[in-house]
Design a protein around this nucleic acid. Sequence first.
DNA 1: ACACAATGGACCC
DNA 2: TGGGTCCCCTTGTG
Length: 588
Amino acid sequence: MGPTTRAQFVYNRRRRRRSGGRHAVEEASDEEEQRQDSSSSSSDEEDEAEASGEEVADDDDDDEEVEEEAAVVEAAAKEHPAAAAAGEKRGGRKGRITISLKKVCKVCKRTGHEAGFKGAVYIDCPMKPCFLCKMPGHTTLTCPHRVAMEHGVIPAPRRNINTSLDYVFQSQVKGKISMVKPKFLIPNQLECGNIKFHQRRVTCLEFHPTRNNVLLSGDKKGLLGIWDYVKLHEKITYDSVHSCILNSMKIDNANDGILYTASSDGTISCTDLDTGIGSPLLNLNPNGWNGPSSWRMIYGMDLNIDKGLILVADNFGFLYFLDRRSKTRIGHPILIHKKGSKVTTLHCSPAHPEVLLSSGNDHYARIWDTRKLEANSPLASLAHGRVVNSGYFSPQSGNKILTTCQDNRIRVWDYIFGDLQSPSREIVHSHDFNRHLTPFKAEWDPKDYTETVAVVGRYISENYNGVALHPIDFIDTSSGKLLAEVMDPDITTISPVNKLHPQDDILATGSSRSIFIWKPKTEDELTEERTKQKAKEYVYGSGSRKKTNGKHDNSSDDDSDGDSGRKNKKTKKTRFTCITKGKGKSKV
DNA sequence: ACACAATGGACCC
DNA sequence: TGGGTCCCCTTGTG
């Protein structure tokens, strides 16, 4: 087993231990067994190899050493077969075979280096541009944009020169409003979770606007979940609403028992939340499946509350209007993004519902006036480096725009009536495209009336006491500063779906098939934490003991025995609820 | 402890 | 424009 595979093994073992702990598995014995298993099997291997005369490279051997030795022996064998044979005799082994363990980088296929996890730290391929900022010449570990709480996210330089409006805003308005709401609380404490509530990965989340504590969720299979996270066992799933990816959800503002959902099955459904009975409002594939080139999928959807309209956009770049009451289509589809390209999100301005923001796979976000809508008539086109995952107006005034782009940048436009030529800020943040993940979407905090705070999941991992965790980032979009990174040792999966509660300091996270609820730490918990931190500092600071890996110390793969993970585990309260998986409509 | 599959988009021709 | 091919930090399953 080479170093990489061993590292991967250790990493996986840690993960297994973590997930196993939840189900009251006897951890220690399990662990011991595993350790014994692996050690005995590996020694067996060596014995066997030795008996057959094979040379087995030890894990700890240096790559180059092994390679060199192999090369030398091979060359010698070629040039002097007799001498090689003699060497074999000297070694007292018959048919000595040398295996060349050439390490190949899985990214660039070259030798001499390897990309991949070394423990909890991912080592980039040096031949590729930085995985974080996409610039050549360095790797993620040394990227100047690398997220670290101590230093904050470094925003990319503001490219446009301030307009006069900016100047007025800065000098007259900005100083008079506080930058963050008076008591800004980050919901960073895991409150409860619903493990594998969904059959496939979670694709969207929405808090019910009027029913307290009710969270709606959708997954890749089209399953709709309804969960009261205070009454932990009140969970309902409906699998009949859609047949594939549930991309977007909106509660009817006139009837809060009605949910509109958009799906890649090409339909908009209107579902009664109490019965789960849905009726299709729109079906873009009335003739069924005729191959992928004609199958229409719906990603973006929003409501125009004033006009009682539902706005819908498909994967071919077209926008459709639906009348909510008559349940009929209005007018003709209008091309709002490059023909044949997906429209990822739609958002009507909260202040001016007739103003629409669309974002698409054609690398643009566009602002439209829906009263005079024609193809090629956007009010503005906001250029991006790659596919735009999402675009949202700010939640109060609608004056700002926040977009998430697959070029690993979050873009902010501070004033939509100003110069939109280029964004006010570009914030480098890891949220790349990965075909196996729900696309990341940075979203405003609806409660933050200064329209500053945004939340977004992070793709690349952080070494957290020897475990690779993927935090959920709270970003100050006015400075690019990282306000908080939310993570928990029990959540090792990436969390691309995040929703902040419209009134409460609560964060809902969709991570793989699970859903989590976060709340701020209470005063007591904060005090306790500070005390613990002080005690920790005392221990590490006073003795000669080697300082263990800090949260942001990515320097080395320590902890190959995974001890710190277990320490962490001990203090963790288990407050999860597990549900039994069921088919069809299930009340759990 | 592996292998494997699912499957979206970029890029090339 | 469309088909072929490749792909860097996934996750769950068998």
